[in-house]
């Protein structure tokens, strides 16, 4: 009985509609992937600027990042998410991702 009461209290707080939960989870995962993609991109641009990479390496990094961006676009479309859905508001710290 106590477990029932507990569960009831939980559902009051959490919107447990399976579809919303799935969409929320997907956007959370994609947000983190997008964060990693942006970090990698910035790191790559910095290394290219340093000029220590061969042309071939630069080309390969560029292609990888380009495909990654395409893939992200496809995934977003697939789950019906807009680019601005992939973000987390960190309150006083501002949004996790800079507006793209």
């Amino acid at each position: 009985m106590s477990e029932n009461a507990h569960r009831h209290e939980l559902t009051e707080h959490i919107d447990a509609d399976p579809e919303t939960v799935e969409k929320g989870l997907v956007s959370l995962v994609l947000t983190i992937v997008e964060l990693l993609r942006q970090l990698m991109e910035r790191q790559a641009l910095r290394r290219v600027e340093d000029g220590k990479l061969s042309d071939e390496q630069v080309e390969r990094i560029g292609l990888t990042l380009m495909r990654l961006e395409e893939k992200m676009g496809e995934l977003r479309d697939h789950f019906g998410l807009e680019p601005e859905d992939l973000n987390i508001d960190l309150g006083p710290l501002g949004p996790l991702l800079a507006p793209e």
Binding site: R42, A44, V58, E59, R60, I61, G62, L63, T64, L65
Partner: peptide, 15 residues
Amino acid sequence: GGAGTAYLLRRKAQL
């Protein structure tokens, strides 16, 4: 460069 290099340069300019 090829397409990858062009992409990087474009992104750099955008950013």
